[in-house]
Design a protein around this nucleic acid. Structure first.
Lengths: 72, 72
DNA sequence: TTTCTCTGTAAATATTTCTTTACATTATAA
DNA sequence: TTATAATGTAAAGAAATATTTACAGAGAAA
């Protein structure tokens, strides 16, 4: 799973902390997302996309793993 | 959070079990998603959208809650 | 160097998703 | 009624996300 969060965030001149505040999560959660440490809930993914002025499908991409939702 | 999973699934003539098999999750998980019982992981949301031939943003909608990702 | 801001990491914990197993309901068909 | 297929519900537990707290490194500015 890849994400363009950092790319969008820096383009808007936001710090991780500012983005976290907009999304109403901890800064660490933003760090983890940018680093791809885990796979967010849809609600969180949506909130981040909205805060960055884009969509979930644009912000996150799946190399197209191998079929399903199971771990890879 | 609203979803059009059932709408897409029935349009394709799939049972919950068949969709579950394509997505590689349990049938109960599909029931819960269709009923809005919980908020899936992004990976699961993506896998379901792909199995139904659509996108995450099309399949799920957020009335646009109130800002962030925090519970409502 | 010291100070400040931003970013990254780590461990324990709370919370939620998702599984597993089991049973109930509804509808169709014999 | 009896049988079968599809759907819905429930509870216990496994696995993951997200929080909380704390500390460390990099860069800019004094």
């Amino acid at each position: 799973m890849q994400t363009r969060i950092k790319e969008y965030r820096t383009a808007l001149g936001l710090t991780q902390e500012e983005l976290a505040a907009r999304v109403q999560v901890r800064r660490e959660t933003i760090v983890f997302l940018e680093k791809g440490k885990y796979n967010p809930s849809l609600r969180l993914a949506h909130a981040v996309a909205k805060a960055l002025g884009t969509t979930v499908d644009d912000l996150f991409s799946f190399g197209d793993e191998e079929g399903g939702a199971g771990g890879g």
